[in-house]
Design a protein around this nucleic acid. Structure first.
Length: 548
DNA sequence: ATAGGGTTAG
């Protein structure tokens, strides 16, 4: 920092006291967004308080750890502190541990170890274990666990609990329960971590068993159990727990409503979702960016794009994730142009920087609406202008859009030039496109790759057989079908849920079990005919018949 | 009078 800045600082300690107090108390009570924070930060800079380590640390803490904060801004603030103290280090490490790049916590910890002015202290470690937990890297975290044992501080309940959480969150339930059982004085946080671990690893009945065995249950216990149920598709159980929770006098909060909104989104239960939305408003549950995102996502998944847009547009504190779920919602709904428009607004008006998920939304929009040149443009913008490394999902969109446009060579080129292993979905898009365009040779290559990657993947056999049949190579078509029979592969039936007037109706592929199935399928057939007449593209056909 | 554990979206 320019040393002359010091000369501009107000000399009167009284004025300093006044501005410090008004600014900082504002920070605690009224700061609801980065816009507010930036105003306060500007004020601090104007009054010279930006050099004050305590004032700056509070700004840092808001940016790094509040749900309204911005970790990149926090890092900017941190890197301008001349001599960060242990507080500053711990705050920024904690901020990254709960961000989308927890790896930075570990990098920062290493810099901290190399720094000559500060030493890690007990309070530094929980954030690091949380970073490892969020990265799913418990093996690397185990090395830090070794360091904790050497330092003799495993008995610290905060440290021990994050270690339990790390192991259990990453599926190392043996290690987690060993530590859980080793100490007789484990507290409720340790119980909760175990519940979360079992639920995240598909053992929700084990979670419920622990939940019932607990000495007492905090709001976090209830929320963890509800989210565990939703994660495992036990939606009725989740709503039942919500009832029980209220009966026991525990107040549902942001976390509870996010899980329940998620349950509604999963099942398409619009009425229930609307009810939760109303519950949030009535009970003054704070609509932080995550809750906002969950509301938008629920409306999108339940098909109410208009309502989602309305909520989005009237919200005052939109996080990047809120923009992203709106872009993805529009893209999935087939509103490709609107999705791209939304992305452009995000870029130009929000002051936020699009991330990999934003681009995934745009690319999904392009692929769902068949916009090839746009997809290529945004893909290069992502990698070149924004320097974002594409994931397999981004490549998947690119392959998909090329396939839909019939650019099979280009699509295959993208796949074969990947540095990582292409996924089954990608080859599947190509295979399906090959079938549509009658390119049997390439289709065969794609099918072979699919069957290599996942011999239980039915679409490989089915599409391969169809591709052969389409070009009159019936013998080979029969071989492909026989191979599938021989390996005794059965498709897990697809299933969709539709909510009509508060009743959820379930439809399973090739199983006509609905009481009004005759009427429903008659209308569906009629719609299919109309679509076939109007649409130019060829619809996927014969799949159901083949599987019967 | 700025810092530590468990629950959350895409």
């Amino acid at each position: 920092m320019n040393p002359r800045c010091n000369a501009l600082q107000p000399s009167s300690s009284i004025s300093k006291f006044i501005s410090e107090n008004s600014c900082l108390s504002m920070l605690e009570k009224n700061c609801r967004s980065m816009r507010d924070l930036q105003k306060l930060h500007a004020q601090l800079i104007k009054t010279g308080l930006s050099m004050d380590i305590i004032a700056v640390s509070r700004v840092l803490s808001f940016c790094a750890t509040s749900p309204f904060g911005d970790i990149n801004y926090a890092y900017q603030v941190f890197s301008r502190i001349e001599q960060p103290n242990a507080f500053s280090w711990n705050t920024i490490i904690r901020g990254f541990s709960q961000s989308s790049c927890p790896q930075n916590s570990i990098h920062l910890f290493i810099s901290m170890l190399h720094s000559s002015t500060v030493e890690p202290i007990k309070l530094t470690y929980p954030s690091l274990f949380k970073a490892y937990a969020n990265l799913g890297q418990a093996q690397d975290g185990a090395q830090l666990h070794g360091r904790i044992l050497k330092l003799g501080i495993e008995c610290d309940p905060f440290i021990r609990n994050t270690i339990i959480y790390m192991y259990s969150n990453c599926g190392y339930l043996v290690e987690a329960s060993r530590l859980f059982n080793e100490y007789s004085d484990v507290d409720i946080v340790a119980w909760n971590s175990m519940i979360i671990g079992y639920a995240k690893n598909g053992q929700v009945s084990e979670s419920l068993r622990l939940f019932d065995k607990m000495p007492w249950r905090s709001d976090v216990s209830w929320n963890s159990m509800i989210s565990g149920c939703v994660r495992n598709g036990k939606l009725k159980e989740a709503f039942h727990l919500f009832q029980r929770m209220q009966n026991e006098g525990i107040k549902p909060n942001e976390f509870t409503t996010v899980s329940l909104l998620n349950a509604c989104a999963q099942s398409g239960a619009l009425k229930q979702g609307e009810w939760i939305h109303a519950y949030i408003q009535k009970n003054k549950i704070q609509v932080n960016p995550i809750v906002l995102t969950a509301i938008i996502d629920m409306y999108c998944k339940c098909g109410s794009i208009g309502k989602a847009l309305q909520v989005f547009e009237t919200a005052s504190t939109k996080g990047l994730s809120s923009w992203n779920s709106m872009i993805i919602g529009l893209a999935m709904n087939g509103d490709g142009k609107e999705a791209i428009q939304m992305f452009l607004e995000l870029e130009r008006l929000s002051g936020l920087r699009p991330n990999d998920v934003s681009f995934l939304g745009v690319l999904t929009a392009c692929s769902h609406s068949g916009m090839v040149t746009e997809a290529q443009y945004y893909f290069s913008q992502m990698t070149e202008t924004y320097q974002i490394k594409p994931t397999i999902k981004h490549y998947g969109c690119l392959v998909d859009v090329l396939c839909r446009a019939g650019l099979l060579e280009e699509a295959e080129e993208v796949i074969t030039e990947l540095t990582e292993t292409p996924d089954v979905i990608m080859w599947g898009s190509l295979l399906f496109a090959c079938k549509q365009h009658g390119n049997v040779e390439m289709g065969k290559r794609a099918a072979e790759r699919i069957l290599e990657l996942d011999p239980t993947e039915t679409s490989g056999y089915v599409l391969l057989a169809n591709a052969f049949a389409l070009t009159g190579r019936y013998e080979e078509a029969i071989d492909a079908r026989a191979l599938m029979k021989e390996r005794d592969i059965r498709k897990e039936p697809g299933c969709s849920l539709v909510e009509v007037e508060e009743v959820v109706h379930e439809f399973v592929v090739a199983r006509r079990s609905h009481p009004r199935e005759k009427e429903i399928y008659r209308v569906l057939d009629e719609l299919g005919l109309i679509l076939k007449e109007t649409a130019e593209c060829v619809f996927q056909d014969g799949l159901d018949g083949f599987l019967d």
